[in-house]
């Protein structure tokens, strides 16, 4: 029964789905896997301790926290907000593309932000709506909903596809740590560099899609005003 070794994966799946404490689930998954594979409890604890200590690199980003904290305290977010507020007169699509670019840049420079709460809700989404309104008048509910979804999507896309371009991102360190455990000695810097093309491609796709979105907004406003003309 080789398949019994997959019990750890099953435990992780169930644990994540039922939202049981993640750290405990991961340790339990390791324990179960070790025991069904014939390791003793002592061997498991030794292996776990050894593996945890040899992967400390993955958590090295803790060392950057005092600097991030100091910057936050001194208005990092407020200054970023001020810069974005200064952007005026762009179309909705261009504004969203610019936010995507800023978000990717923040990832590259390791500026950790909780984008949805700190930027999208208070700043990006209202500015995107306002830009559509100022050009085409009050938008219908469907379009408003679409701009909301788009603003949130920009945040996720920019965050996900650019975060690994920073050398000490936890994703990068996890890739390095995992590959090292599997016998491939790779450097975090090379991983960060290899992450650049995806960040770039994602940005291009978003820009193209936003250009199309602007076109659609213009088209919408023409048909609405056309209908009004018929009345």
């Amino acid at each position: 029964m080789e398949y019994i070794k997959l019990v750890g994966i099953l435990i992780i799946l169930l644990g994540f789905i039922f939202k049981i404490d993640t750290i405990a689930v991961v340790i339990l998954a390791g324990l179960a896997t070790a025991l069904v594979s014939g390791l003793s409890l002592f061997e498991f604890l030794t292996l776990l301790g050894e593996a945890f200590v040899s992967n400390r690199l993955v958590t090295l980003f803790f060392l950057t926290l005092p600097m991030i904290g100091l910057s936050e305290r001194s208005g990092l977010r407020q200054q970023a907000t001020r810069l974005i507020e200064g952007i005026k007169g762009l179309t909705t699509g261009r504004f969203l593309s610019l936010y995507m670019f800023i978000r990717e840049l923040a990832g590259f420079f390791s500026i950790r932000i909780q984008g949805h709460t700190q930027f999208v809700r208070p700043l990006i989404e209202p500015m995107a709506q306002a830009s559509a309104e100022s050009k085409f008048g009050e938008e219908d509910e469907g379009t408003q909903e679409k701009i909301k979804a788009r603003s949130a999507a920009m945040e996720n896309l920019g965050n996900f596809f650019a975060q690994n371009t920073f050398v000490a991102a936890s994703g990068v360190l996890l890739i390095a740590g995992t590959l090292k455990s599997l016998g491939y000695d790779v450097s975090a810097v090379n991983i960060a560099q290899a992450s650049l093309p995806i960040a770039f491609i994602a940005l291009i796709i978003v820009i193209v899609s936003n250009i199309l979105f602007d076109k659609k907004l213009r088209g919408n406003s023409k048909t609405t005003s056309g209908k009004e003309g018929e009345k």
Partner: peptide, 14 residues
């Protein structure tokens, strides 16, 4: 993340 990397080691050993 560090714990998951450690889990990877255990998975590999098993």
């Amino acid at each position: 993340p560090q714990l998951l990397a450690a889990l990877g080691v255990i998975f590999t050993a098993a």
